[in-house]
Design a protein around this nucleic acid. Structure first.
Length: 428
RNA sequence: GGAGGGUUGGCAGAGCGGUUGAAUGCACCGGUCUUGAAAACCGGCAAUGGUUAAUCCCAUUCCAGGGUUCGAAUCCCUGACCCUCCGCCA
């Protein structure tokens, strides 16, 4: 959520910045609502003041043993007038809140202008895609031939966009999770946290998935109002909801491994093959809460932490800055890491690292106590995948494939694999 | 699933339907004292919104939402969460 003051006193400048990302603000509507709100609020508060003053006088008169009947007559119709004014004001304020909850974050000035992902700006490349002397297979053919991936079974058990992983490949998938968690906790200073995979709607509102993007979520049946998490960002960032943290405790840095559940509504026909786009996948997520002045430095660092995983796995990738048109709803600036997939001959997203500034913190009421003033002040929040585990497995299979269909296991993972060096077809 | 108790400021913890935004303690900030620190003593110290150049001032907020009342932290109803006991369970 944006600072409400922007909508009151800097409406046109704000609208101009939002227009960069293709969002158009209804200026006339907001101005009209704001004007009505202002006058209604002043009227309502005047009535409240009158009620308070007269009630106090009644109390004093009663204590002094005087007749309170004349005073009671004075306030006879006050209640109805006040109630009507309060209801009108509440309705108006709720209307303004709903509008505010639907307005995306302001893109940072360093974010390139653009309409869609074609306009994203490439920042750098790391590693060189291997030149193979054979036709590379994609992960589906590789994984199926190795007996590790079974999409037919998954479709039978549940439906499309799910995976079954067997044997050594399942172990490799698990090894990736351990490796990522260990790296981030031991080398990058994150503290590991285990969180619920089911959250309430307040949490989703806090991080920005609700009210606007409920179609992307799996909601639980019944009247609990619970949802499966689409990312660990939701439960982990909500650790801070309604908290005031001491400045000395900043920055807070958490890493969590969770499954993620996404309905992928509107993704029909996109990435239908394999485990690139699934309803359920594992992810190791990095979350930071920092002092406002530090958040852009923190974004560079956090992105570097995600890159470190790709580098240790020796997977070629590139870093792109999302353009204004591709930027997520809550984000002020986002770097995507895209890993090279030989099976597709393309770079594909494997991590997304974002600085939300105070956008989430305002919804969450996540604050620090300012060391100089002692006053509460909104934090800045960030997060990034470090990394999406399913897609990392895909990248490993495709980049480490051999002519005979086997897959070499990267050095850094062998300790988690009992020293195993290679995935290959085995007799059952 | 059954029975009971609870939710008040950064924290702990009082609060009779009437100048209670709320006692007290801790923490924090400023001062006195001290070579310095500690202790002691004195003073200050909620958030959000409106208005304002700023202060003043005004309003709202004692888990949430309704209700009673001229007036609710306090009474009534509903819900959420926490705790204790019983049952069940990994």
């Amino acid at each position: 959520m944006l600072d409400p003051r922007l909508l009151r006193s800097e409406l046109e400048a704000t609208a101009a910045i939002l227009a960069r990302r293709g969002f158009s603000l209804d200026l006339a509507q907001i101005q009209a609502l704001e004007e009505r709100r202002k006058s209604l609020q002043i009227d309502t508060q005047a009535l409240q003041n009158e009620r308070n003053t007269k009630s106090k006088a009644i109390g004093q008169a009663k204590a002094a043993g005087q007749d309170i009947q004349p005073l009671l007559a004075e306030v006879a119709d006050l209640g109805d007038k006040l109630k009507a004014a309060e209801e009108a004001l509440n309705g108006l304020q709720d209307e303004l809140l709903q509008i505010s909850l639907g307005i995306p974050n302001l893109p940072h000035e360093s974010v390139p202008e653009g309409k869609n992902e074609d306009d994203n700006r490439e920042e750098r490349r790391w590693g060189t895609p291997a030149t193979l002397d054979f036709e590379p297979k994609d992960h589906v053919d590789l994984g199926t031939a190795l007996g590790g991936l079974d999409f037919e079974a998954a479709a039978r058990i549940t439906g499309a966009r799910f995976s079954v992983i067997h044997g050594e490949m399942a172990r490799l998938h698990r090894a990736l999770i351990q490796f990522m968690l260990d790296t981030h906790t031991q080398e990058h200073g994150y503290s590991e946290v285990y969180v619920p995979y089911i959250v309430n709607s307040d949490s989703l509102r806090g991080t920005g998935q609700l009210p606007k993007f409920s179609a992307d979520l799996f909601a639980l049946n019944g009247d609990s109002g619970f949802y499966l998490i689409p990312t660990a960002e939701v439960p982990v960032t909500n650790l801070l909801r309604d908290q005031i943290v001491e400045d000395a405790d900043l920055p807070r840095k958490w890493v969590a491994h969770t499954p993620c559940f996404r309905s992928e509504a509107g993704a029909y026909g996109k990435d239908v093959r394999g485990m690139i786009r699934q309803h359920q996948f594992e992810k190791v997520e990095l979350v930071q809460a920092v002092r406002p002045e530090d958040s852009f430095d923190a974004l560079e660092q956090l992105t570097g932490h995600a890159e470190a995983i790709l580098q240790k796995l020796a997977l070629p990738y590139r870093v792109v800055t999302l353009c204004t048109g591709d930027l997520g709803f809550s984000s002020a600036k986002t770097y995507d890491l895209e890993v090279w997939l030989p099976g597709q001959q393309a770079y594909r997203e494997i991590s997304s690292c974002s600085n939300f500034r105070d956008f989430q913190a305002r919804r969450l009421q996540a604050r620090r106590r300012h060391p100089d003033t002692g006053k509460p002040e909104l934090l800045h929040t960030l997060n990034g995948s470090g990394l999406a585990v399913g897609r990392t497995l895909v990248a490993l299979l495709e980049n480490y494939q051999q002519a005979d269909g086997s897959v070499v296991i990267p050095e850094v993972l062998r300790g988690y694999m009992g020293g195993q060096e290679r995935l290959q077809r085995r007799a059952k």
